[in-house]
Amino acid sequence: MDVSDLRIALFSGNYNYTRDGANQALNRLVGSLLSKGAKVRVYSPKVANPDFPPTGDLVGVPNVPMPVKGRGEYRMPTHLGAEVKRDLAAFAPNVVHLSSPDPAAHAALRWAQTHDIPVLASVHTRFETYPRYYNMAFLEPLIVSMLRRFYNRCDALVAPSQSMIDELRAMGMHEDIGLWSRGVDRTIFSSARRDMAWRREIGLADDDVAIVFLGRLVMEKGLDVFAETIARLRTRGARHKVLVIGDGPARPWFEANLPDAIFAGFKTGDALGQALASGDVFFNPSVTETFGNVTLEAMASGLPVVAAGATGSASLVADGITGRLVAPSGSKQTDAAAFAEALAPYCSDAALRADHGAAGEARACEYSWEAINAVVAETYIRLVGNRAK
């Protein structure tokens, strides 16, 4: 069987209406599959003004606003509906790909099993950790149980880092889990993009050490730990500035808790590459990532990285070589103190920043999108072949 024989029905909770790392990876995957002759049909919520055009054919599925305070920009696919089921039957996929464990994905899983079609699920985020950031941590065991039931009904999983694969296996999510890593666009992310004139325009002096946050401004990205860490750095007398690249519903909270930070706003493409490379240290305290696209992008931009030693970053950052990893303790105060300890040397040692930044950029060169996406295509072919036996 060849890639061109594949007919893939891909289900996503967010394919293009709000830009994030997961749907950027999915769109790249679809583009790669289509270029090799595969047939792909994407099923996801559609909105009037999406963040970017979809790659491939996109079919809308029934949905409602996400029923979580502060996340109204996201949609929850609720079910398939008769029209979507007719479209599925007409498309006649030979493999189904589920990228989020939402109600429509559960329905798609049942549809695939009824029609004897293999199912691959990709894991993009640590959904079970989200309740911690909305005062609902008591829900975590229930969500883990629900995810375990969902993923074990699939034929196989792919996850973006070895650390995430290990975590999924430890939680009993599945045994057949492949590595679908992430690539980085070296035409955008490179230390050569550093722009001193741009720094000056936004208020950074040439000798300022800018600690960068990059990502969507939502609490589950560890905004509280980031802000507390910066406060601790300030009390230590570690000279620095904060550069925030991104936007989101928690921006007012972040601005209030980082009163001296420079907020550059949401950026993409060349403007994002310029902004990121113009920082000095990248700080990612999030424990919800399964890979950490922003961490890889920062490494490719020549920045040393200080990150939580959790799934994702733990597979990217070489502790003491490309940055520092801090093991999460579960306590915001303890984590902030450890992060401040890790960040402080970078605030005063230009040679350390340069050495670790250069090592990270060299490591980032290993991540090729073409080779990475080929792994998913090979998994589809294996699952279809197994079902035919």
Rank of each mutant, 00 (worst) to 15 (best):
L58G: 02
R324Q: 14
E83S: 12
L217M: 14
D247K: 10
P304H: 01
A359H: 10
G70E: 12
V96M: 01
G357A: 14
A231N: 15
L142P: 00
K267E: 02
R324V: 10
G265F: 06
G70D: 13
I230C: 12
I8R: 04
G273H: 04
I143E: 04
P345A: 00
R382F: 03
R387I: 01
I117H: 09
V3E: 07
A377L: 08
V281C: 03
G56D: 02
R153D: 10
G357E: 14
T379C: 12
V326W: 07
E220K: 14
A318Q: 10
V61G: 02
Y151C: 09
N94Y: 09
A82K: 09
Y346S: 02
S181D: 00
E140H: 15
D20Y: 00
L58C: 11
R126V: 08
G222H: 12
M196H: 09
V84C: 04
N257Q: 11
N27Q: 15
S163H: 02
R194Y: 06
V3M: 09
E175I: 03
R126L: 06
Y134N: 08
D319F: 14
A38W: 09
G81P: 15
V3Q: 08
N152G: 14
W111V: 05
V61Y: 00
R132L: 13
L80S: 07
Y17P: 00
N14C: 15
Q274C: 10
N135M: 15
A275E: 03
G222K: 11
V212R: 12
A92T: 10
A350N: 12
A227R: 01
G323N: 12
